[in-house]
């Protein structure tokens, strides 16, 4: 129920932001941060309630993953809006909220059954919390970075492009170490404890590595080219599409050790 309310709050935020986008005002709407915080808090409450029901941290299925991603993205966007105040980009907020809306819409699809199920033995590990939580925070920031990179890509004004470049870089620079720690480092440590191998070249692992390489290429290229390369935002866009494929595509198309994730 809380997740459904959160979904409609995100829809309301999207409608309000859409209205402000077409209005002739430069200021972002004042309701967005509070609506996004409310949606994030409700999604957090959903996760807590499901965790209590199964006596384990409820981040073990696709539905739970999607609402966590939407919740983190909502909090990140609210934080950006509150920090930037009236200077916050309305287009970025709208795009980011739309991504949170897409996560929620996917969570209500048949691809993500919402039944509350306790985890199978393989998932009963403290490492799951670190592995999944850090990965999802990183991926939610990558999602916001994807929106900023698209805006950078399609901005004609040099100043706006530079502003979106800084925003993209900030989001990736925060998300990258979290994704590295969660998806690769904690994942490898957990894999050693569960399967006896740090790395198995499982499809999920391999595509997580490809995603990580894309963001690694972005950070290094930005360091070398100092914002001059047109490849910079494209790499972030590609990185997020790879992250999506790693998260959803591998689950449904490529069987492997992570078939339950």
């Amino acid at each position: 129920m809380t997740a459904i309310i959160a979904f409609w709050i995100i829809v309301a935020a999207l409608v309000i932001q859409g209205a402000f986008l077409v209005l002739k005002t430069r200021k972002p709407d004042p309701l967005t941060p509070w609506l996004l915080i409310a949606a994030g808090a409700l999604l957090l409450a959903t996760t807590v309630a499901r965790s209590v029901a199964i006596s384990f941290v409820a981040i073990t299925g696709v539905y739970e993953s999607l609402i966590v991603l939407a919740g983190i993205a909502s909090f990140a966007l609210a934080a950006y809006r509150l920090r930037k105040g009236a200077d916050a980009s309305r287009a970025f907020l709208f795009g980011g909220t739309f991504i949170a809306f897409l996560f929620m819409a996917l969570s209500s699809s048949p691809l993500a059954p919402s039944g509350i199920k306790p985890p199978v033995p393989a998932l009963r590990s403290a490492w799951l919390v670190l592995h999944v939580a850090c990965t999802f925070i990183g991926e939610a920031l990558f999602a916001c970075g994807f929106v900023a990179a698209l805006l950078q890509l399609f901005s004609r004004d040099g100043e706006r492009r530079a502003s979106f470049d800084r925003l993209t870089y900030t989001l990736v620079a925060i998300g990258y170490p979290l994704f590295t720690a969660g998806a690769l480092v904690f994942g490898a440590i957990w894999a050693e404890a569960a399967w006896g191998r740090w790395w198995s070249w499982d499809p999920k692992e391999t595509w997580a590595l490809v995603t990580w390489l894309a963001y690694t290429a972005y950070l290094h290229l930005r360091l070398i080219k100092r914002r001059q390369s047109p490849w910079l935002p494209l790499l972030v866009v590609a990185g997020f599409l790879l992250a999506l494929f790693t998260f959803l595509g591998v689950n449904f198309l490529l069987p492997g050790l992570h078939s339950y994730a």
Binding site: T206, L254, G256
Partner: peptide, 13 residues
Amino acid sequence: SLRKCGLGGLVPQ
């Protein structure tokens, strides 16, 4: 490296 990772990620190892 990317190409190899992609190929290996699509075919069971």
